[in-house]
Design a protein around this nucleic acid. Structure first.
Lengths: 111, 111
DNA sequence: ACTTATACATAGATATACGAGGTATTAATG
DNA sequence: CATTAATACCTCGTATATCTATGTATAAGT
């Protein structure tokens, strides 16, 4: 099943920061990993990903560095301390959001 | 904690349809009920709600009717069969979306 | 009489994701 | 060896959703 892009809004940054919190990665790698890891449910589009990475970098939530490996130059991203703090915040927000939606749709709005 | 409006995007319609699946309601009532029921986490803004209700009506997912009660004229909305089908679909989509986000942030993207 | 709450509505501003398009390099294929 | 596919980066315009601000009207409370 495909997830509508509107549902994705607001959730993409937390996914990216989560990946970078595990290990340094480059953009193209993140698109492939997101696709395989979620069995194609999420497809981190390049037109979405790269602008976000640039914003995260200018906000100093991640740092970029070029690194050559296997004869390929890639732009790697590393999460910063601020980025980890932001991730922690966004994770709390997500948890509250998700459980509140669940509460409404499970109880149908009953008080 | 306040939920960013970007996170809300794509989730508002399912919340509205869920409320209407329980009982017929009018707009203003829905804003109050959403606020109290979620302890202020979700605040269904009127500028958001009314345009959505109009769209749902023109898509024939809900039907509107005026009804006077307690000396007040209110525009009630009733969910249609199509609306219930749509709600069922959106609920499945939400469940997949939510569990996939959880999978990523819990495992950090590990395969 | 005046203010607040109820009840509906719309228009403009803002943010986000995506599709389409572009460039460059390396690997694979006929 | 030439061509195509895959890798790897990037930007711009478009579509969509939510919110703020604003407006109108009626009923209730002070």
């Amino acid at each position: 099943m495909k997830i509508s892009k509107e549902l994705m809004k607001g959730s993409t940054v937390i996914l990216i920061l989560t990946l970078l919190n595990r290990k340094d990665m480059y953009g193209y790698e993140m698109t492939k990993e997101m696709e395989t890891h979620t069995d194609g449910v999420f497809t981190l589009k390049e037109g979405t990903l790269y602008p976000i990475l640039h914003t995260l970098e200018s906000d100093q939530l991640v740092e970029a560095y070029w690194h050559e490996k296997d004869g390929r130059k890639r732009k790697y991203y590393r999460i910063t301390k601020s980025g980890q703090d932001e991730l922690s915040l966004k994770t709390k927000e997500w948890t509250l959001f998700r459980s509140t939606v669940d509460r409404v749709i499970e109880e149908g709005g009953r008080i």
